[in-house]
Write a protein that binds this DNA or RNA. Structure first.
Lengths: 236, 236
DNA sequence: CAGTGGTCTAGACCACCGA
DNA sequence: CGGTGGTCTAGACCACTGG
C-alpha cells in the first residue's frame, strides 16, 4: 500500500492488531512484554512503549503496572460521536443552510431550568428558538437557554448569520458538555414549524455546556426522525 | 486535590488547557513551540512533545509539521459514544437482565440483506430475534442476521444465557463496526412484544460488524424512546 | 525478589514550512 | 535558511505486581 515505510512504532502497533484480528491472541490473552517486543523488532523500549501505550488509549489492550499487558475484552464498541455545529455540518454535505428565528428574548427561569443552569429560580436567562433548514427542508428545531453571565450580549447576536452554537463557542470557551439522545414525539408547535406530523418520531438531543465553572447553555434539539440520523464508525 | 505531584507531561497539558479554558489562548492562536515550553518547564523535549501530542490526539490543538501548534477550532464537540453489550450495561446499573428468545433459525437472504452481509442473494444466513428486559421491563428488541462463515454454530448458542453480541465477540474477533441511530415507529410485532403502543417513538440502531474481511452480523435494535436514551460526556 | 510498565533525559536525524 | 514538529535511541529511576 504505502511506498514509504511506516514508522517503527506503527509497525509494532500493526503487528499487535493483526495478531488480535486474526484471533491468534484472544481477549484476555497476555501481550508480550515491552522487553520482548523490543528484542523482536530491534527497536528501543521507548518506541515499543509508545506503540503499546497508544493501543491502550485506543482501548485495544489493557495494561496493569507491575503485571503486564493483555488483549482487552472488546465487549463494548466505543466510537466517537461527533456533535457539530449544524451550519458546518450542512455546508460539509454541500448543501445550503438557512434558518428562521422564532424568538430571542430574556425570560425568568423556573425552578427546573434554574437548576439545570445552576442559577437561582427567577433569575434572568436568555432564550432563543429557531428552525434550521437544509436546502429548504426543516431538519432541526433548536430551543436554547443561555446563562447571561457566560454571554452577556447573546440577545444582540444575529442568528440568521451565525448559529447559537458558533456564537457561544466564540464567546464562552467550552470546557465541558454532556448530552442525551432519546426518541420522542414533537410538541404541537415543534411539529408545526418543522412541517411534520405531531405523530412523527423525532430524535431529541438535550445538551448542556459548561464554560469554566458556569453552565453556559442548555439546548433542546429536535430532529425529525425521517430526515436525520446520527452515525458512527469503529475500527479495531 | 492530588497529594502526589502530577507527572511532568500532565503539568504541561494542564497548563495549556488552563490557558485555553480561561480564554487566554483562543481558537486559532498559536501555542508556544516545544522548545519554548521545554525552557519554561525545565523538562526535556520528549516530555513536552508527549504533552502536546496527546492534546493533538484529543483534538484540543492542531499541529502542522514545520509550521507550529495552534489551539483547535472547537466548533465541534466530539465525544465517545459507548455501544456496549446490553447484558453488561444492565448489570452495571445494578438491575437484572432477562430475555425472551422469539426465533433462532436459518433463512435465505433476500437481495438487500445479502448486499448488507456481502453475500450472494439466496445465501443461507442465521437469524435470531429476541426481547431484552431490564428488571422485567422490555427495553430492547433485537433482530439480528449473522454470516454463517463467521459463526458456524450460531444456532446452537443458548441466548437465554449469553447475548448474541457477547457470543459473536467471542467467536468472531471484531475488527470494524458501523452504526446509525434514528427515530422511528416500531412495527406492529415490535410494539406488541415490547409492550408499547405502535405510535410510541423508538430509537432504532442499525449496526453492522465486520470480522476480518467478512461482514459478521447485521442487527436492528429497537429501544422504546420512553425507556431508553443514549448519553455522553465531553471534557476540555 | 525479578519482571513489568510509567516516566524521564539528553542527545540525534529527518522532513517540512515559511521567509 | 532557521524554526518547527515527527521520530528514534540508549540509557535511567521508580512503583507496582507477582511468586
Amino acid at each position: 500500500m504505502t511506498q514509504i515505510p511506516l514508522p517503527a512504532y506503527e509497525q509494532v502497533k500493526a503487528f499487535i492488531k493483526a495478531q488480535i484480528s486474526r484471533g491468534v491472541w484472544r481477549p484476555g490473552d497476555s501481550v508480550p512484554s515491552e522487553a520482548a517486543l523490543q528484542q523482536q523488532f530491534g527497536v528501543s523500549r521507548m518506541t515499543v512503549n509508545r506503540a503499546v501505550k497508544e493501543l491502550a488509549v485506543e482501548g485495544v489492550v489493557t495494561r496493569v503496572k507491575g503485571s503486564g499487558t493483555a488483549v482487552a475484552q472488546l465487549h463494548r464498541i466505543s466510537s466517537t460521536l461527533a456533535v457539530r455545529d449544524i451550519h458546518e455540518e450542512i455546508l460539509e454535505r454541500g448543501h445550503t443552510h438557512s434558518t428562521t428565528v422564532l424568538r430571542v428574548e430574556a425570560v425568568q427561569a423556573d425552578a427546573a431550568l434554574a437548576h439545570t443552569l445552576k442559577l437561582r429560580a427567577g433569575a434572568k436567562v436568555f432564550h432563543s428558538v429557531q428552525v434550521h433548514f437544509e436546502d429548504g427542508l426543516a431538519i432541526l428545531f433548536e430551543d436554547r437557554y443561555v446563562n447571561p453571565a457566560s454571554a452577556p450580549n447573546y440577545l444582540d447576536a444575529d442568528f440568521t448569520k451565525t448559529t447559537p452554537t458558533h456564537y457561544l463557542l466564540e464567546h464562552a470557551p467550552l470546557t465541558e458538555a454532556s448530552y442525551s439522545i432519546e426518541a420522542a414525539l414533537p410538541s404541537a408547535q415543534e411539529a408545526n414549524v418543522l412541517g411534520i406530523s405531531p405523530s412523527a418520531p423525532c430524535l431529541v438531543m438535550k445538551r448542556r455546556t459548561i464554560s469554566g465553572t458556569q453552565v453556559a447553555s442548555f439546548a433542546r434539539l429536535v430532529y425529525p426522525g425521517v430526515r436525520y440520523s446520527f452515525s458512527g464508525n469503529f475500527q479495531l
